[in-house]
Amino acid sequence: MRGPSSASSVRDGAAPRPDPGPGTPGVGLSRSADPARAASEAAAQIDRTQARFVLAFIPDRLACASLAEALAQQLPGLPVFGCSSAGQITPEGYEDDALLLLAFPRAHFRCATRLIRPLSPFSIEEVSTEARRLAAQFAHSARWNRLALIFADGLSKQEDLLVAALAAGLEDVPVFGGSAADALRFRETAILQDGALHRDAALLVLIETDLEFRGLGFDHFLPTEHLMVVTEAVPEERLVLELNGAPAAEEYARLVGSPVEALSPQVFAEHPVLVRNNSIYHVRAIQKVTETGALSFLSAIDDGLLLTLGRGREILRTLEDELAVTDAAGRGPEFILGFDCFLRKLEIGQKQLTAPASEILRRHRVLGFNTYGEQHCGVHVNQTFVGVAFFEPRTRGLA
């Protein structure tokens, strides 16, 4: 598979990206603001004869409908799946305005898909049944491994139930994914499937591969002594009206030492709230303050839920340590497919760490997008990096 041309793959004096293995996706990349040109430039960098399917991560500035049509024209007969994003992770690290195409090689990947629509509402039983049926109909290749990817409308407020339903239906097949986004607008997201765009939808991609893989999921927060009880909520809208018996935004602002009017995505990124599940804490990210002083969340919330204010560790050190994964033979991955929360990218930019963070992502061969939420093994989380590290097949390593 061919990657981007040398003119676009290395900028600002960065060291060359490590040579890809044969299982690494081909990369198509364009920074054009014109949908037709972006599709043409990115598609030209892909060897269609070697590709099984393509994942497309779309920047906010491109008109999704026009881009979907252009990609269908540029890549006829090749399945293209993906979504709108809050940023892309390209061979150079974090970007905001790049169309990223990942062409998975047919020698190492197979897939089957199912569109889930609508999400608001949907039947948990029906989704579980459809996932189970898809897995049963997808012929299993001997000694190949299975996983599932899910791309969901990040404004649907249904990801918690959706990923739980999929995990139940797919049983021992692990599910990873990210919620579609539209930068920091929170207006409309899009799911792409073979030239068609879908709203209020999710796309399940069941994958078989002869590569070994390992799931990743990590954040960089520790709990503090500051506790909050949700004393009034609207769960179906992910709204918290009161914390500790006080107006939610006022109480949160008091605990983080900020005026209510100064609360913003940057403040939420620095001061997340955590929910404890056994011994593990997960982030429940705040999206915004509503006009009535409530807090709108990006994950499930309910009356009586105990929240803990989090404090951050060194985000770059955590990123480096957690991406330094190896297989049983001690080999690093051929590539890592990454779903990284937009709030993490926002914090990294706020601390002027984008360049070193991008170097870490580049060195560890991470490709993917920035999300409104992440799905990791049956749980919907926020402000987390979720990924799948793919390693060379055992048979190749023994040859």
Rank of each mutant, 00 (worst) to 15 (best):
N145S: 12
A180Q: 13
P118H: 09
F81H: 09
R61P: 03
L75M: 10
G93R: 08
L161F: 04
A181D: 13
N145M: 02
L78C: 12
A139M: 08
E159F: 03
L155T: 08
L67I: 10
F81D: 00
F151S: 05
F104T: 03
G169S: 04
S123G: 06
Q137C: 10
Q137E: 14
P121C: 00
E95F: 14
D60T: 13
K157M: 11
D60P: 01
L99P: 12
L155I: 09
E159T: 07
S123N: 00
S123V: 00
L166K: 01
A72R: 07
A148F: 03
T129F: 06
E130T: 14
S66A: 15
L100P: 03
L155Q: 07
R133V: 14
F151K: 03
R106N: 08
R143K: 10
F176K: 05
V54H: 05
L119P: 01
L147M: 10
S120N: 15
R61G: 02
R133W: 12
C111T: 08
F104Q: 04
L75I: 03
F57R: 01
A70P: 02
P91M: 06
L155V: 09
G178M: 06
D182M: 07
G82A: 06
L102F: 10
P79K: 09
T90L: 10
V173W: 05
P59E: 02
